[in-house]
């Protein structure tokens, strides 16, 4: 692609038109890209449409899918599991991420290198981590089972970590924390760098000890960065799919079946497009509300 220095479109493209012409394709693409699938999803959710019964076609049934949803125990179960999974992962990841950021902000030689190395888990794609953890958590002979056995946790090992409804969700939470904690650390470290050095000096002159500095200066000034990263984690974890799909597929039973996985089984595996769409709508709605709050939070600070 070459661009000559002489404008070939002079006369046709006035400067005013050029401004809009540059932005238009992307704007159209984004707006159509939001409206078309969202509209189609909403429409499908008001129909009975199963790709295994093509003879029946797609028929409009109004809110029937949603009333069915409200009476579906598996839906409630997946809501509950999604809530536990999201809240637990976000809390653990935030506390751990903030702790790591603080521990690695003491100006000791080598800190930068440690921070860089700790980023690696975050850069490993979730589907790869998913395969890897499934491999490491293999019952009895997997490396984690063997480590736990040598530490004396035989009971868990024999039942298998991912095959036991009591431990599978916990294992998924830890796997997601492992994958996500560097992101929290990164955002919080960014926040730490914006705290002016003079504040610490002044506090120390006034005789504050480390604990007081942390309690009255660092943490209050970090609250915005912590809030941002907690929202981000909530959004990521709420839509988490790949690692769960690969590690447990929602099982054993439905003990790790979050909304994202449930709608996948219904819509894609069982090909019940209509009913699956109503589950996806619930998911989208929750994500949208959290996103709007997060966007407002970001924009109110930026202005």
């Amino acid at each position: 692609m070459t661009f000559s220095h002489v404008n070939p479109l002079k006369g046709i493209m006035t400067p005013q038109r050029v401004k809009y012409a540059l932005a238009l394709p992307a704007f159209v693409f984004i707006i159509v890209g939001i409206i078309y699938p969202t509209g189609y999803l909403l429409y499908n959710s008001t129909t009975a449409w199963s790709l295994t019964r093509l003879d029946l076609g797609q028929t409009f049934i109004g809110v029937d899918n949603y009333s069915k949803l409200l009476a579906d125990p598996r839906f409630y179960s997946s809501l509950r599991i999604t809530a536990i999974f999201t809240i637990a992962t976000t809390s653990i990841q935030t506390v751990l991420g903030v702790t790591l950021a603080l521990l690695l902000n003491r100006n000791i030689r080598g800190e930068g290198l440690v921070r860089t190395l700790l980023l690696i888990p975050w850069l490993v794609a979730p589907f790869i981590s998913g395969f890897n953890f499934r491999f490491m958590m293999a019952p009895n002979i997997g490396v984690i089972a063997q480590i736990m056995e040598s530490l004396g946790f035989d009971a868990i090992v024999q039942a298998s970590i991912l095959g036991n409804p009591r431990t599978a969700l916990g294992a998924l939470i830890l796997a997601h924390v492992w994958n996500g904690v560097p992101g929290t650390m990164l955002v919080v470290t960014g926040g730490l760098k914006t705290i002016p050095e003079e504040l610490y000096l002044a506090a120390r002159v006034d005789g504050a000890d480390r604990r007081q500095i942390l309690r009255y200066i660092t943490l209050p000034l970090l609250s915005y960065a912590i809030l941002i990263s907690a929202f981000l984690t909530t959004l990521f974890i709420f839509k988490a799919f790949e690692m769960i799909f690969i590690m447990t597929g929602g099982g054993p039973g439905d003990s790790t079946e979050v909304l994202a996985v449930y709608q996948y089984w219904v819509g894609i595996r069982s090909l019940k497009i209509g009913y699956g769409s109503s589950i996806a709508m619930v998911q989208l709605l929750v994500a949208f509300i959290v996103s709007i709050i997060y966007a407002r939070l970001m924009f109110s600070r930026a202005d």
């Binding site: 401004k19 809009y20 540059l22 932005a23 704007f27 984004i30 707006i31 890209g33 939001i34 699938p37 969202t38 189609y40 999803l41 499908n44 959004l235 709420f238 839509k239 799919f241 994202a260 709608q263 996948y264 819509g267 894609i268 497009i273 699956g276 769409s277 996806a280 709508m281 998911q283 989208l284 994500a287 949208f288 996103s291 709007i292 997060y294 966007a295 970001m298 924009f299």
Partner: peptide, 26 residues
């Protein structure tokens, strides 16, 4: 061009979960 409204649209678009769109896209 687009002003802060379009920035907000773009920002929110990025946050939408692709996984919720799997069924209509399929």
């Amino acid at each position: 061009v687009g002003g802060s409204k379009m920035m907000l649209v773009i920002f929110t678009a990025r946050l939408l979960p692709p996984v919720a769109y799997i069924i209509p896209l399929f």
